[in-house]
């Protein structure tokens, strides 16, 4: 004979395996959990972290002073005599007899700094403009549409210029300095962030839950700030990560073109690449090393960004 309790116990046992958690997981936290399981994200994060740690600890990590021409008696660029990797200098010497490894390590500082600050600048200004335009449309009315139109036409003009050309002109106008590089690269990022945030806000403002909030009688301002903006940030954050990669490359490109930081007392990957150009036939490794680290950092940020895009995509959510 089976009793009612038996039945219920057995059923409970079978369903217990899937007991629901008492506390729900927010979207961000869940996205983070998925991110942790994604090998692409993990490798990207490892690369990025590695370079961050290198950049921060550079003075202690670098085996030698990157500017000290300790071995300049061994290198004769005019006679095409260079020194490759050896026991005391793992990556060899550069054209001025400085330790290449130390220069690469210390160079990470400036490259990453430029990348982060420039992207941060682009993100801040771009998100502000895009957010304003998006909010203006979201709040509605004729005025809103005007504000949006004005902002977006300015942004469109920025977008219409090739980004490198834009950066070059900014750098040329302001004169070369570290700040110039950051501003120049940042300016090229502004329209991307602005368009992205505005577009994503517009899409969200047509969604059903915004309609629902309207139907509830929630104030428009609160709808924009409480619903539309938070839900629009995902793609912008992804773009931010991806932009870090381009920012580093663009900063390098500016230095390469001679529009970088004129203060040469610190090594920087882009200018190292530029300098190496003259000795491409005699010492190609001097160009290859900075190029490789630029590529790897950019790859790291790209992997991380792509993985973030995947984990934030609501369609892929289970």
């Amino acid at each position: 004979m089976t009793t009612k309790t038996d039945k219920i116990d057995r059923l409970a046992e079978l369903t217990a395996a899937r007991a629901e958690p008492e506390h729900g997981l927010g979207l961000w936290r869940e996205a983070f959990r998925r991110l942790k399981r994604n090998p692409m994200a993990v490798s990207g994060a490892v690369i990025v972290l590695l370079f961050l740690v290198i950049a921060i600890l550079a003075p202690w990590l670098a085996p030698y002073d990157p500017e000290a021409r300790t071995w300049d008696h061994e290198v004769f660029q005019n006679q095409n005599i260079f020194v490759g990797p050896r026991a005391e200098n793992w990556l060899g010497l550069d054209n001025a007899g400085r330790d290449e490894l130390s220069r690469i390590i210390v160079g990470a500082r400036q490259s990453l700094l430029v990348g982060v600050v420039a992207t941060g600048l682009g993100f801040a200004v771009g998100a502000l403009l895009g957010g304003l335009a998006g909010a203006a449309v979201g709040l509605g009315g004729r005025v809103g549409q005007r504000v949006d139109a004005v902002i977006m036409r300015v942004v469109d003009m920025l977008l219409a210029m090739p980004s490198l050309l834009l950066a070059v002109s900014v750098a040329a106008i302001l004169g070369p300095s570290l700040l110039t590089v950051m501003v120049a690269v940042g300016v090229t990022q502004v329209p991307i962030f602005a368009r992205l945030l505005r577009g994503s806000m517009l899409a969200q403002s047509h969604s059903d839950y915004v309609l629902a909030a309207n139907a509830l009688g929630v104030k428009r301002r609160r709808i924009v700030l409480g619903h539309i903006v938070p839900n629009s940030l995902g793609p912008v954050l992804v773009q931010g990560t991806l932009s870090l990669a381009t920012a580093i490359i663009e900063a390098a490109a500016l230095s390469y073109l001679g529009l970088g930081n004129p203060d040469t007392s610190y090594p920087e990957w882009g200018s190292m690449l530029a300098d190496a150009q003259r000795f491409l036939s005699g010492a190609p490794q001097l160009a290859i090393y900075p190029a490789i680290v630029i590529i790897i950092t950019a790859l790291g940020f790209t992997l991380l960004g792509e993985a973030m895009r995947e984990s934030l995509d609501p369609k892929l959510r289970k």
Binding site: T2, D6, K7, R10, L11, L14, T15
Partner: peptide
Amino acid sequence: DNIAWADGCAFAPRCDHYTI
């Protein structure tokens, strides 16, 4: 609410005729 077929009828938890 389904259970796995290996354990029994998947529909059992929703079923009005459910027995052990």
